[in-house]
């Protein structure tokens, strides 16, 4: 899913002729492939961005996974399980893409579990009702799709190709979420209230997914120049709001922003101030579920160690038996 706002690209040494040739390829919309020469900052930035994107997918399985056993119909149960499975798969594609840049899966997982690597802070919020599952599919996946479509044109080949695959699979995720919201809004008064409550809690965190405001965001220049990042944070955020507000109105729900109003001349929905203090707080570790999410991942990893070891031990035995 989404990791914008978590990485910082540093400037390359442009006097280098190799760097010039590299930049020329990027400007010509050519793809950079594994083992191609690349400036070290490009490689580091990409590795961080791709691996954090992968971590986000894997951690993202937890808030939605929380409702699989309580999904209210068999159809919803299967759809949610398939969606969460897709997210695991996306994590896998992204770890694979990151590994082409020289890191191993084990190293990247270690960084996540020790807290050195970040993941999208949206997943540090709890899923309190079934309506949260609808809200996540509609808003969180909606925001992610916007970013992922942009990344399909990223300069690094393996990342771009992983994004194309992800986008193809993602198409049902947002529809599934919106359909849940629609069903609730057409349901009982309690269900409508449940839907409104979910929107109230997930709206602002979804806007924060696009990262800090452009004027507050440093180091974007190199990412843009290297075509790792194709659009500005504010640009994508505005696009998301413009697409989503009409969807909320169709549901008969109220977006929890008293300052929200349509600006006729520009054709955009203007919205109120984002609480960036909350964003920084959650990013720093004080969100509602940060500790639970990391604890769950650590536990799964630790509990699974003997399984991974057993598989390797068995493989080693097989190789040993084949030797004369």
């Amino acid at each position: 899913m989404y990791s914008q706002g978590l990485t910082a690209a540093t400037v390359a040494d442009d006097a280098d002729p190799m760097a010039e040739a590299f930049q020329a390829r990027i400007d010509a919309e050519q793809k950079i492939e594994p083992n191609d020469w690349m400036p070290e900052p490009y490689r580091r930035t990409l590795l961080r961005q791709i691996s954090q994107h992968a971590h986000s997918e894997v951690v993202g399985m937890l808030p939605e996974g929380n409702w699989i056993t309580r999904a209210p119909t068999l159809k919803r149960k299967a759809a949610l399980l398939a969606k969460v499975q897709d997210e695991g798969g996306h994590g896998l594609y992204l770890y694979a893409a990151a590994e082409t840049l020289g890191a191993s899966r084990e190293e990247m997982v270690e960084q996540l579990l020790t807290g050195r690597a970040k993941y999208s802070s949206i997943f540090n919020y709890p899923t309190l009702t079934w309506a949260d599952i609808g809200a996540i599919g509609w808003l969180v996946d909606g925001a992610a799709i916007m970013n992922q479509i942009a990344l399909c044109r990223c300069s690094y080949g393996p990342y771009a190709r992983a994004m194309i695959r992800v986008c193809r699979e993602e198409s049902f995720h947002q529809r599934q979420g919106y359909e849940i919201m629609l069903t609730l809004c057409r349901g009982t008064p309690e269900q409508r209230a449940m839907a409104q409550d979910a929107l109230d809690r997930w709206w602002w965190p979804s806007l924060m997914m696009f990262g800090p405001s452009d004027d507050a965001s440093q180091h974007s220049d190199a990412s843009m120049r290297w075509k790792i990042k194709r659009f500005t944070n504010d640009g994508l955020r505005q696009k998301f709001v413009d697409a989503t507000v009409p969807q909320a109105r169709y549901l008969g729900l109220t977006v929890p922003d008293p300052e929200l109003r349509f600006d006729e001349p520009s054709g955009h929905w203007r919205f109120g101030a984002i609480d960036w203090a909350e964003f920084r707080r959650v990013l720093a570790g004080d969100g509602p579920c940060n500790r639970e999410r990391l604890a769950a991942r650590r536990e799964a990893h630790a509990d699974g160690a003997w399984v991974r070891e057993a598989a390797l031990a068995h493989a080693a035995k097989q190789r040993g038996e084949k030797r004369p």
Binding site: V58, M61, L62, G65, I68, T69, K77, A78, L81, A82, V84, Q85, G88, G89, G91, L92, Y95, A296, E299, A300, D303, G304, A305, V307, R308
Partner: peptide
């Protein structure tokens, strides 16, 4: 089997167990 979601020993097995459950 769906209870394993998010807690499997390795990412590849997450997908395998989910396939079984589905």
């Amino acid at each position: 089997l769906s209870e394993w979601c998010g807690h499997a020993p390795v990412l590849e097995e997450e997908l395998a167990l989910a396939n079984l459950a589905l």
